[in-house]
Amino acid sequence: MENINNSRLSIAPSNSAFLLIIGLITLILIRVFYVINQSSQPRSSTSKQKPLSTLIVLGSGGHTAEMINLLNVLPKNRFKPRYYIAAATDNMSLQKAQVLENSLLNEGGVDEVRSAQFMQIYRSREVGQSYITSVGTTLIALAHALWLMIKIRPHVILCNGPGTCIPLCVIAFIFKVFGIRWSYIFYVESIARVRRLSLSALLLYKLRMADQLFVQWPQLKSKYPRAHYVGRLM
């Protein structure tokens, strides 16, 4: 009888721990669905608009050129301070961003240059890298993205295609779920994407991590109904 009682006592804590885990998982799932639902809601503008700290993800090739064109029409006083991030192996993108910010200085906007910072992040996967070895580099990139997001804590994340944005968006989404920081993720698909989304856009679309995903071709809107068709931006 004593052995039976002891076994019952040992089972009880196990059941409690199991129920606690199930409860935590349930709460997290509820929070995830809440975040996804809130992210899909339209944003209301306030009369007194405060500056929004903005994280801008740059990518090699045409990604940075398109982003610079987009930033040229962005109200700089509304989106500041600005944090530019590019892959550690991308030596050109940050230089182009610095040229943009220096042009603001030439126009007399001294505060604009002071409100810009330039950073680099480890790339999740290099071009041609095998998927097996990319597992390790992706984990490193996620850890680096976590450190950057803790440091920056942006209100807005603006990206347009480079895979570098995925770890940052993942961390931003996790921060939303756990109530650490609500960063609005805006993804502008490249004009070069006519018939299907890029891998980065597809991941953010399928996982519902982007608050708004903009496309520049009506074919993409038809194929991905939750995207926002805005016509040609570049």
Score class of each variant (00 low, 15 high):
residue 84 Y to W: 12
residue 27 L to W: 05
residue 16 S to P: 01
residue 94 L to W: 04
residue 108 G to A: 10
residue 38 Q to H: 06
residue 42 P to V: 05
residue 24 L to F: 15
residue 126 E to M: 08
residue 10 S to D: 15
residue 97 A to C: 12
residue 120 Q to F: 08
residue 65 A to W: 05
residue 36 I to A: 05
residue 133 T to V: 12
residue 102 N to W: 09
residue 23 G to R: 01
residue 123 R to N: 01
residue 97 A to F: 11
residue 9 L to T: 15
residue 100 L to I: 03
residue 49 Q to R: 12
residue 46 T to A: 15
residue 90 D to V: 04
residue 60 S to L: 05
residue 129 Q to T: 02
residue 99 V to F: 09
residue 15 N to T: 14
residue 91 N to I: 03
residue 100 L to M: 09
residue 17 A to N: 11
residue 57 V to P: 06
residue 6 N to P: 11
residue 109 G to S: 15
residue 5 N to C: 13
residue 13 P to G: 02
residue 62 G to W: 05
residue 52 L to P: 12
residue 8 R to S: 13
residue 54 T to H: 08
residue 87 A to W: 00
residue 30 I to F: 13
residue 114 R to C: 13
residue 48 K to P: 14
residue 103 S to V: 00
residue 66 E to R: 01
residue 6 N to Q: 14
residue 38 Q to P: 00
residue 101 E to S: 11
residue 125 R to I: 09
residue 73 V to S: 08
residue 30 I to N: 10
residue 76 K to Q: 14
residue 132 I to W: 06
residue 65 A to Q: 07
residue 93 S to I: 02
residue 49 Q to W: 07
residue 105 L to H: 12
residue 21 I to E: 10
residue 80 K to M: 09
residue 51 P to K: 08
residue 45 S to V: 08
residue 110 V to I: 12
residue 94 L to D: 01
residue 82 R to D: 04
residue 116 A to Y: 06
residue 27 L to V: 03
residue 77 N to R: 11
residue 13 P to C: 04
residue 93 S to E: 04
residue 96 K to H: 10
residue 43 R to S: 14
residue 93 S to M: 06
residue 61 G to D: 08
residue 79 F to Y: 10
residue 118 F to R: 12
residue 37 N to E: 03
residue 91 N to G: 04
residue 57 V to S: 02
residue 6 N to L: 14
residue 38 Q to G: 05
residue 20 L to F: 01
residue 8 R to Y: 14
residue 28 I to V: 14
residue 58 L to A: 00
residue 75 P to K: 07
residue 114 R to H: 14
residue 92 M to A: 10
residue 7 S to W: 13
residue 74 L to K: 08
residue 27 L to Q: 08
residue 8 R to N: 13
residue 21 I to Y: 09
residue 82 R to M: 11
residue 81 P to C: 07
residue 127 V to P: 01
residue 109 G to K: 15
residue 76 K to F: 15
residue 128 G to C: 06
residue 100 L to R: 01
residue 42 P to W: 05
residue 26 T to W: 09
residue 46 T to Q: 10
residue 95 Q to D: 13
residue 100 L to T: 01
residue 70 L to E: 09
residue 40 S to A: 12
residue 85 I to S: 04
residue 60 S to P: 11
residue 44 S to D: 13
residue 90 D to I: 02
residue 107 E to W: 11
residue 47 S to F: 10
residue 116 A to Q: 00
residue 39 S to P: 00
residue 71 L to P: 03
residue 19 L to G: 02
residue 112 E to N: 10
residue 21 I to G: 03
residue 87 A to F: 00
residue 55 L to T: 00
residue 96 K to Y: 03
residue 94 L to C: 02
residue 82 R to S: 04
residue 42 P to F: 06
residue 56 I to N: 07
residue 25 I to R: 13
residue 89 T to V: 00
residue 11 I to M: 06
residue 103 S to I: 00
residue 14 S to E: 03
residue 82 R to Y: 07
residue 109 G to I: 14
residue 114 R to A: 12
residue 102 N to T: 08
residue 112 E to W: 07
residue 19 L to T: 07
residue 93 S to T: 01
residue 125 R to D: 08
residue 93 S to G: 10
residue 52 L to K: 14
residue 59 G to L: 01
residue 123 R to F: 04
residue 4 I to H: 15
residue 72 N to W: 13
residue 43 R to T: 13
residue 75 P to W: 09
residue 129 Q to L: 01
